[in-house]
Design a protein around this nucleic acid. Sequence first.
DNA 1: ATATGTGAAAGTTTTCACAGCA
DNA 2: TGCTGTGAAAACTTTCACATAT
Lengths: 195, 195
Amino acid sequence: MGVYIQVLEGLLLQEQQVISSEKLAEQCEVNPSQIRKDLAYFGEFGVRGVGYYVSDLLKAIKYFLGIDRNWNCILVGVGNLGRALLRHQQLAQKGFQIQMAFDCDPFKIGERVAGHEVICTRRLKEKAQQMQIDIGLISTPPERAQRAANHMMQAGIKGIVNFAPTRINVSQDVIVDYVDFSNHLISMAFRLSHP
Amino acid sequence: MGVYIQVLEGLLLQEQQVISSEKLAEQCEVNPSQIRKDLAYFGEFGVRGVGYYVSDLLKAIKYFLGIDRNWNCILVGVGNLGRALLRHQQLAQKGFQIQMAFDCDPFKIGERVAGHEVICTRRLKEKAQQMQIDIGLISTPPERAQRAANHMMQAGIKGIVNFAPTRINVSQDVIVDYVDFSNHLISMAFRLSHP
DNA sequence: ATATGTGAAAGTTTTCACAGCA
DNA sequence: TGCTGTGAAAACTTTCACATAT
């Protein structure tokens, strides 16, 4: 689904105004019917005999996915991965604004990274509650991920994206998404082994 | 599938020798039948009335997934994300050894990161062919991802994991896997918007 | 003419339910 | 008794094929 956005934004840059499900399917590497089913799901956006208006379609998809607004994010763990996330252009572009960065390393506290002052993790609750934070990103080493999650839960954050390679326990009402690099490499190893 | 490994390795550390599909399902957050089906797929590894022997099961899964061996990897793009990958303990632990790191920035060439000398990307083919490289990791900015992929293809690499937020074109016989952070945040936004 | 939207068919995955074995 | 392995059922997803709209 995210692929659609990526491809459609590419088309917008090329100033292509209309696209057919067939052409779009080609670029997204999926079946044309798939696309028509998906797009029909949130309203009739295509024009028969013509195709889809790229700009309108993008707006509709963004609305449907809930990214027609900004999402306030915070990040815990200003290591290399944390810095990569703080500097990641596309996140901010898509409305995922990392408002604050936390770390428990005294050497990092006070440092500025990509326009953010690094704040002590113990002050997370206090700081995060001043602003309504929607999503927390964990980019700590695995052994500190649970603690980061606990801080986030205490601040009332309901969505956690965990980049640390470990599972975390959260209360029922919190949604966790895991981003695990190893899994991608495992999947690649499997595909290379079973041609 | 990678979840099984993560959880089983956790159990191994806790020196738990046997686990039932029910308990394993709980930790992996899936249905017990799911697990039994999956595990039965590559042989009868469970013992009725008892459960699965953790250590044997792990070996069987690793064999099945093709990670009972080492995979030689290279990385292109020694920015923050590249450094995070080079320092990522679990990748090496799982047999994904990043053998060389490349970058086109003259200021980075020659630098040592996590025990690797950063090499000029133009020398990739020459260097990578000396060692049989299985997998290439791209952690460049998006505008340089395609070039990195081209270098990898010229060196005969058949598996590419692309961390840059852009699609790349590769020849038929090359497998590409995309790791896109934005997609995870989009999925989170969607789940938070549709409770 | 051309390309969408969609019901029906085919395919795939998940879950159930219980026989079978330690 | 307790827990696996598995066929059958249910749920979900993908694809086809064509009526329908511009």
